Amino acid sequence: MVIVLKKEIPKYPKIKRDEKISVIIVSYNVVNLLEKCLKSLTYETKLLLDIWVVDNNSGDESVNMVKEKFEQVNLIENKENVGFACAVNKVLKLCDGDYIFLINPDAIIKKNSIEKLVDFLRSNPEAGAVAPKILYPDNSLQLSCRTFPNITTQFLESSYLFKLFPKSRFFGQYFMSWWDHNSLKEIDWASGSALMIKIETLNEVGFLDDEMFMYSEDTDWCYRCWKKGWKIYYLPEANVIHYDAQSAKNSEANRLIQVLESRYRFFRKHGYKNKMYIIKAIVLSGLLGRIIISFLAWLLTFSKERKIVKFENLKNFYQAFLWHF
């Protein structure tokens, strides 16, 4: 149910007042953070914002909060959790913004950041999308830029070698952890937790792949964007605080399975269909290693509270492993 409540351009031209930015927030059981997110948007007073919240059948007071406190927000109430991509696509069929800003409900936009993102897209015709710097609540860097997945990056991720050598350009290539994230940079793809998209690019590239319930839909869209000749940029002057994975924090096993399911779909779509046995062998080896390490950690832990945590980790990896069979 829908409730409608390469010529040179000067850098950062003044934003046009009649340009509309459609902001899309997909929410699930994060009422307090969603309220903070919506409040942070109210500081963008120079912009014409068309704000949409899609609630994926939350069990909390999210829907009532939006109705009572943010009457200007367009609200879509789903009767079931349809996932991120499908929820975004529902709005894309209805909104009419010149720019589309995807933002997670557990994110807070720093003042003037949306304006900086729009200004950048207006200044750079080749740019199809731009991502802000994403920070944790303690203001430490959240790695949100990536290279496109391949067999090598999957091995580095599954083996945890990227964590052992984060500053290495080779071992840290997927998460780009070798880079300080303090400079403007063209990137392969950025997290959909905060991403500004030009409408011309969206019209050419198409909507998100709603077969990806959650995760990798941003990777897939940016890859299709790159294939069409558009560029994705990272703009550190724009900042977003992201609490990260709050909707999925109580179901880590399901989150792991969703990550893998969507990642496998990406690989099958983009040239790795005949190499899936290699990719799955790499993932399974990595999960088996984590199961063994988690079991040993549980065995060697004597604190009751910590033992419960170690057992949960073990159970999550084991369930993700069994899901493959």
Rank of each mutant, 00 (worst) to 15 (best):
K228C: 08
K228P: 05
L195Q: 02
K198V: 00
E217W: 09
S168N: 15
F171R: 13
M212E: 08
A190E: 04
A190S: 12
L184Q: 08
E186Y: 02
F207Q: 07
N182C: 12
Q173M: 15
K185Y: 01
W179T: 11
D180I: 12
E204K: 08
I232P: 00
I232S: 02
L161C: 13
M196R: 01
N203H: 04
Y160F: 10
A245E: 15
Q173D: 12
L235G: 01
D218M: 10
I232M: 05
E204C: 04
Y215T: 08
K228V: 04
R169Q: 15
L202K: 03
P236W: 04
M214I: 11
Y215R: 10
E186Q: 05
A194Y: 01
L164N: 14
T201G: 04
S168F: 14
K228G: 03
W226T: 07
D209V: 03
W179K: 11
L184W: 09
L184Y: 12
L195N: 04
L164W: 14
Y223C: 02
D209F: 04
G192D: 12
D220M: 04
W230I: 03
S193Q: 09
F207A: 07
F213M: 10
D188Y: 06
E237V: 06
E237C: 06
Y160P: 03
W189G: 04
Y243H: 15
W230C: 03
G229S: 01
D220A: 04
K198C: 00
S183P: 03
E237I: 07
M176D: 10
M196P: 01
S191Y: 09
Y215P: 07
D188I: 06
S183T: 09
G229Y: 02
M214Y: 11
E217C: 08
G192T: 10
G192F: 10
V205D: 01
F213V: 09
C222R: 02
D209N: 12
K227M: 05
D188C: 10
M176Q: 14
F207D: 11
L184F: 11
L235V: 02
L235W: 03
Y243E: 13
E186C: 01
R224H: 07
M214S: 10
L235N: 03
H181I: 11
I232N: 03
G206H: 03
A238F: 05
W179P: 04
